[in-house]
């Protein structure tokens, strides 16, 4: 589904740019959950930004193919229309735009790009009801302005609700667990588990192993200095929890493991 080859990217700065991604490789197939872990500043969120097309990043080398097509050439909205979704680390508040209006516009633009008719209001309301129940979101939140006055946990849950509504092929969860109490964390994870099918895939970016108790990854990757330096199964996350990142990031210790 997603192939990243030798991806190098700079973040634009006043001094011309700082290289954050330094040759990253990753393969994600349908039906898989990949966890990307790593210490602060290793480039995890930059990867999410580059994959979804946020302004302010320059790809200097490498390629990203999504279902065989070059992803980096197209606009953020076209990436979304082709089935890429980012659950934001810091979802923005948009006063004046209701969740319903926002989602209806999004769904209908995605449908339009596929040559489909707009969704009827009846169908839309039914979908809202069904997905709100699935992710455990209070239906009252849906008529409110996007994220305005939502708690941290409600914002993250709203991200998962949007994910459920848009039904993407590849979802990237950028530190969705950070700042959540255990109940909110469990609710978000349950939502993801319910939404997982053999046809879609997830990249779960996290700083903590905690989330992976609830969302069981097929692969765990450790990112360090803009590269994936170690990959393994779910047991790798546990090992990181026990031993920290030092044994991976410090080459001397790596030799002794």
């Amino acid at each position: 589904m997603l192939t990243i080859k030798n991806l190098k990217a700079k973040v634009e700065t006043d001094e011309g740019g700082k290289e954050i991604l330094k040759g990253l490789n990753l393969n994600v197939n349908a039906g898989e959950i990949h966890a990307i872990m790593g210490p602060n500043g290793s480039g995890k969120s930059t990867l999410a930004s580059v994959l979804t097309g946020r302004d302010g990043y320059d790809v200097t080398e490498g390629e990203v193919l999504f279902e065989g097509k070059d992803l980096l050439e197209i606009s953020p909205e076209d990436r979304a229309r082709q089935g890429i979704f980012l659950a934001f680390q810091y979802p923005v508040e948009i006063p004046g735009v209701s969740n319903t209006n926002f989602l209806k516009t999004a769904i209908n633009e995605i449908r339009k790009s596929k040559g489909e008719e707009p969704m009827s209001s009846v169908e839309f309301l039914k979908l809202i009801k069904e997905k709100a129940k699935l992710v455990g979101l209070d239906p009252q939140m849906i008529s409110r302005y996007v994220n305005v006055g939502f708690s941290g946990g409600e914002k993250k849950r709203n991200e998962i609700f949007q994910l459920a509504m848009l039904d993407p092929k590849l979802s990237i969860l950028d530190e969705t667990d950070s700042g959540l109490d255990i109940d909110a964390l469990r609710a978000v994870a349950e939502g993801v588990n319910k939404l997982k099918t053999k046809d879609n895939a997830f990249i779960v970016i996290t700083h903590y192993q905690r989330l992976l108790d609830y969302i069981i990854p097929d692969f765990v990757h450790v990112m360090y200095q803009g590269r994936i330096v170690k990959s393994g199964g779910k047991e790798l996350a546990l090992q990181l929890e026990d031993q920290g990142y030092d044994w991976i990031t410090d080459p001397k210790e790596e030799a002794s493991v």
Partner: peptide, 20 residues
Amino acid sequence: FYLQSRGIGKENARTLLLYA
């Protein structure tokens, strides 16, 4: 970017935000 990342085109995103 938030609106665009949900599939809403630049023009529509702009309209939505200005309206809001």
